[in-house]
Amino acid sequence: DKDDELAVSEYAADIYSHFKVQERTMTHVPPHFMAMQPQITEEMRGVLVDWLVTLQFSFRLGSETLYLAVNLTDRYCSVNEVPRSTLQLVGATALFIASKYEEVSRALWVNDLVAICDNLYCRQEFVKMETQILSALGFKISAPTAFSFLPRYLKAGHADQNLAQLAAYVL
């Protein structure tokens, strides 16, 4: 699961600096997938992730859903060249897939996607992108995200409630 570890180690580098021992096992995959993308930059990815976070709040999605969405976006970007104009489409669709995968009751509908992207893309584009992402990842959706490692690390670090809150916030 090189790809999975790649995504995780990417977060791990700056987040888990205080859990150095565990971190070492994951940082051996150098995550520079963004360098391959001619049209999008790390900054754009950052903006996209921030936007996904706001969506997580407004649609009351679980944290797992958010982390999975970011992970799917990154994995898709590491195997496909994404034009600047479709980055938002990829991100929103990844959130859509993640919500279907993780949420117990349906939380996000195609119409929501159209609305949150301000009619930039139409229904068909989302539905098509969904299949494209799933096919590109060979339907291997599940991935250990930073969030799935958090509880384990908190335990390993004998974290108290404050540290747990702080860690969840930083993540």
């Binding site: 279907k100 299949t131 799933l134 959706i141």
Partner: peptide, 21 residues
């Protein structure tokens, strides 16, 4: 295909999730 106009059937995704687990 697109039986509910909501893209990929979430039941399919759920099943993939559970069976791989």
């Amino acid at each position: 295909a697109n039986s509910c106009d909501e893209g990929v059937d979430f039941k399919a995704l759920r099943e993939i999730k559970l069976l791989s687990y």
